[in-house]
Design a protein around this nucleic acid. Structure first.
Length: 440
RNA sequence: UCCCCAGUAGCUCAGUUGGCAGAGCAGGUGGCUGUUAACCACCGGGUCCGCGGUUCGAGUCCGUGCUGGGGAGCCA
């Protein structure tokens, strides 16, 4: 590390706190995002992960050796700048540093991501560097808050964190495709599509549990709403029924949105999010039976038949009718997985619900009340054509003290995309895995 | 798996009827005392995605393959 006139007596601070040090001399460490020059006055824009600040070099007011360093500094060079903090309305962020010295960690090579426009393919190829941009920084901070608020929500309500396995001997949902691994002797192992079945075991042991972890779907989906690897937040509650988890899901989503609005105003502004639309997200959400949603689609001119599941376009039409999230419940049994419990009053529908985010972001939550009858569950597994042996442990849960129970799964990336108001889920996770993308 | 669109300088793109390969940014050199994706002047920079075909002549037209993007189905 090359050091130039480093003064170790100075305070090292982060940019987000720079306002506390007005008129003091401090050191900020970070990366050069940009530089501009007007001859005898030169500007350096530094980011440190917490914010950006402009530093200013004035010929004659700073040692000439420091002034000339400007010429050697390239975009993304890592440096420490020491200078006096002053309030300056012309500077982005409201403060600037009047430079007294600069020390250099490294002069960066020619940086591929320039201040001009880039295509999505190029940016995804450089995802490891793209993460440094203000936009990605804002999205990932909001992701952090979404997960953090959600976990606090469950922790404060007596839920126990219960991590489900990633390797599973068989599929949880039967219909969708699985990633197969061949490590275990004499048997296949698959990457988890959902932790739910294991969470049901957890609920019978601990009462109220939740997990937050990655899930994998080997679907040939190429849309703005799909990732091959995504994160899901799944609560499961013993003795709960459909109504109870519908209320819980609503409370959770309201809490997450309020939490982001409270702590991430700056990030939402960076993303040009229409805050008013998020402020409208409050209880009660709209509640709608599947039958009424079908009626709504048919009234909107869509030729939709009772018994089908909604496609992405159908979900958009439904959610655009509402300015808040809408919860749709009691789907036909044929649309939903085997473990759903039928409505005793209407056996052709199951006690399930999907939560559709507004603005066409689609389904962010899916869940329901689980089948708790031993004989019914055995029949459903057989009817779905699933290997009974793989589900023996799951069926045991109905053999030894079965109780009504319910839970749901919230898709983290879709939730973050909606709250951020960005069109594609691929920017909501640090390194997205998509149909055509495994690198970097 | 199917449908649509694209592939030209490091990046984003233009390229007319088939007739010398272009611009902005990035990089380099110089200028400028308040810049905001600064600006001004000059310089270097090409497997026009691959293969085959039509033609005197193909970045341009035809066929085919590959890669990427968007969407459908499937799903959170």
């Amino acid at each position: 590390m090359k050091k130039v006139l480093q003064d170790y007596t100075m305070k090292t601070v982060t940019i987000e706190n720079i306002g506390k040090y007005e008129d003091e001399i401090v050191t900020v460490r970070g990366w050069l995002t940009h530089k501009r020059s007007s001859g005898k006055i030169r500007f350096l824009v530094l980011r440190d992960g917490t914010g950006i600040i402009q530093a200013i070099l004035i010929k004659g007011e700073v040692e000439d050796e420091i002034f000339q360093l400007y010429n050697t500094l390239t975009q993304e060079s890592s440096i420490a700048i020491t200078g006096r903090v002053r309030r300056e309305p012309r500077s982005p962020g409201g403060y600037e540093l009047l430079v007294s010295s600069i020390s250099i960690f490294q002069i960066a090579e020619n940086y591929p991501i320039t201040p001009k426009e880039h295509g999505i393919g190029f940016l995804m190829d450089h995802r490891h560097l793209w993460l440094r941009s203000q936009r990605q920084n804002a999205i990932l901070r909001i992701r952090h808050t979404v997960i953090n608020v959600a976990r606090q929500f469950f922790d404060s309500r007596g839920f126990i964190l219960f991590d489900a396995p990633i390797f599973t001997p068989s599929c949880c949902e039967g219909t969708t495709s699985l990633f197969r691994t061949r490590y275990f002797e004499n048997e296949n192992a698959y990457l988890s599509q959902s932790g739910q079945l294991y969470l049901e075991a957890g609920a019978m042991a601990l009462g109220k549990v939740y997990s937050c972890g990655p899930t994998f779907r080997a679907e040939k989906s190429k849309t703005r709403r799909h990732l091959t690897e995504f994160w899901m937040l799944e609560p499961e509650i013993a003795f709960a029924d459909l109504d109870e988890i519908m209320a819980l899901a609503e409370e959770l989503v309201v809490t997450i949105v309020k939490g982001v609005l409270k702590t991430r105003q700056k990030e939402l502004q960076t993303l040009n999010r229409d805050i008013a639309r998020l402020e409208r997200v409050s209880s009660p959400f709209y509640l709608m039976a599947y039958d009424d949603a079908v009626q709504l689609l048919q009234d909107s001119g869509v030729s939709f038949v009772w018994g089908d599941d909604f496609g992405g376009g159908d979900e958009t039409i439904i959610s655009n009718h509402f300015d808040r999230p809408v919860m749709i419940h009691r789907y036909p049994a044929q649309c939903k997985p085997f473990y759903m419990k039928n409505d005793p009053e209407r056996p052709e529908v199951v006690l399930c619900m999907d939560l559709l985010a507004p603005e066409g972001y689609g389904e962010i939550i899916g869940g329901g009340q689980r089948e708790d009858s031993l004989s019914e569950l055995e029949q459903k597994i057989a009817h779905a054509g699933l290997p009974a042996a793989d589900f023996a442990w799951y069926v045991d849960l109905r053999r030894y003290g079965s109780v009504p129970h319910a839970g749901f799964g919230l898709g983290i990336e879709r939730t973050v995309a909606w709250i951020c108001g960005i069109p594609h889920v691929r920017e909501t996770i640090p390194f997205p895995r998509l149909l055509q993308r495994l690198y970097p």
